[in-house]
Design a binder for these strands. Structure first.
Length: 395
RNA sequence: GGAGGGGUUCCCGAGUGGCCAAAGGGAACAGACUGUAAAUCUGUCGUCGUAAGACUUCGGUGGUUCAAAUCCACCCCCCUCCA
């Protein structure tokens, strides 16, 4: 491990020279295979980033994540600020040290909580006021404050504060919200200009499900020198075909030389589709949450391990999977662990699903490098026919 | 031997004349889950039927009543206390 100062200095050099933060090595159509560098490592892209909201990927230890080759995980500004507190984490040397996580960390800004905790917040010009879901206390999150929190956490990739707008918001509201998100992004950039430190900062585009607003958002955001750009506000309750429509419309508008991040997405098909549209980074709670709820992704499709049909199935969960769960346990045993609510069920299932998602990105990258991404996408599409049908419904 | 309490749909358990195929919980079965208020949530759960509805069911048998899981009689079984 590099001494802290030297690492910071090195990373500070990286920031402001966007060329060296992100390098695209191969393309296949719009799909890109690249490398993203942070203060805590090198990340091959496309990449799937496991979500560890409160500083832990639920049910897993850093060793587990290392075993499946996860180079970067997420943390959350809102949750870590409330508990245990970003300053407490700062005093313990940052989130990496506190959580014993040697890889990279991207932190979400709390923008998603504007959506998911909408009944507990008020949006104002200066920021978002949340009523804590833990104790009801009030907290103001401004664009500047969330960066301060993320710097205390020592996040490798900080996200700017945005308003994640629900599906169904009308044009007038979405337009107004978008303008606010853009003003917040400007304030973030002012508070933390390029070269300030080694923490990278990504902007988030919004615009709901109106293409002209998406374009406006991209134009306004990309005029600013962020280290990467995210597409936010997708997968917020919309039909699948709408989501893909917006995805294909928005991704190509983002600057080609910078990393593109599709926030909170998604299913394996969503990810494969996102990569096809030119996205480099993904995160989603789906593999970990579904793992805890018994839904597992395999090379043979999605299966629900609770089902009776697996009660005496002695085969591995996924014969083509390299993970610890698949190498050592039968479907019958995994079903039993789930039914018995054994904690090992969470760990093995999470380990497996994340392996699947990480491998999905790895295999996608390989396909791009070898110039056969369309074949890869076709293969994934065939694995999830119901979802693919929903995606095709409106087109 | 005496006194008391109880047997309800797979399990626990509510229900003491009609609003009861019978609350609630569990189990079981199936589904959902997308920048994590999620080890959460939803549905089904006597039989037949797409449905309307029909039929069978509350330890057993018989009875009272227009109507019984609920009232009465007898019988079978379980539990507690006393001797």
């Amino acid at each position: 491990m590099l001494p802290l100062l030297r690492r910071a200095a090195l990373a500070a050099t990286l920031r402001g020279m966007s060329q060296s933060v992100f390098t695209i090595e191969h393309t296949d159509g719009a799909a890109r295979a690249g490398v993203l560098r942070t203060a805590h490592g090198t990340i091959p892209t496309p990449i799937f980033m496991p979500v560890g909201t409160v500083g832990s990927v639920k049910a897993l230890a850093p060793d587990d994540l290392a075993a499946i080759g996860a180079p970067i995980i997420l943390g959350n500004t809102y949750h870590l600020y409330l508990r245990p507190g970003d300053e407490l984490v700062h005093r313990r040397g940052g989130l990496h040290k506190f959580a014993s996580w040697p890889g990279s960390i991207l932190t979400d800004s709390g923008g998603f909580q504007v959506f998911s905790l909408s009944s507990l917040r008020k949006i104002r010009e200066e920021g978002v006021e949340f009523r804590s879901h833990l104790d009801g206390s009030k907290h103001l999150f401004t664009p500047e404050k969330v960066l301060e929190i993320q710097r205390n956490l020592n996040s490798d990739i900080m996200m700017v504060l945005d308003e994640c707008v629900p599906f169904g918001a009308d044009y007038a509201y979405t337009e107004k919200s978008l303008a606010l998100t853009t003003r917040w992004a400007k304030r973030a950039m002012d508070a933390y200009p390029p070269g300030s430190a080694h923490n990278l900062m990504f902007g988030i585009t919004q615009g709901g499900f109106y293409k002209d607003l998406r374009e406006r958002s991209v134009n306004e955001l990309c005029a600013m020198d962020f280290d990467g750009f995210a597409i936010g506000g997708l997968s917020v309750g919309e039909p699948k075909d709408k989501m893909y429509d917006l995805l294909y419309h928005t991704a190509p508008l983002l600057p080609g030389e910078k990393p593109r991040y599709l926030m909170g997405v998604g299913t394996p098909l969503d990810i494969a589709t996102g990569i096809h549209a030119g996205v480099d980074m993904f995160d989603c709670v789906l593999p970990t949450r579904n793992a805890r709820n018994g839904t597992l992704y395999t090379s043979l499709g999605k299966i629900n391990i609770k089902r009776r049909e697996f009660a005496e199935d002695d085969g591995p969960l996924d014969p083509n999977c390299r993970c610890y769960a698949c190498r050592n346990f039968s479907r019958a045993y995994l079903r039993h662990l789930y039914a018995s609510q054994e904690l090992l069920s969470f760990r093995l299932n999470s380990l497996h699903n994340l392996t699947y998602f990480l491998d999905l990105a790895r295999n996608a990258r390989q396909a791009i490098v070898e110039g056969r991404y369309m074949d890869f996408l076709a293969k994934i599409t065939a694995l999830y026919p119901d979802e693919a049908a929903r995606a095709a419904a409106g087109s």
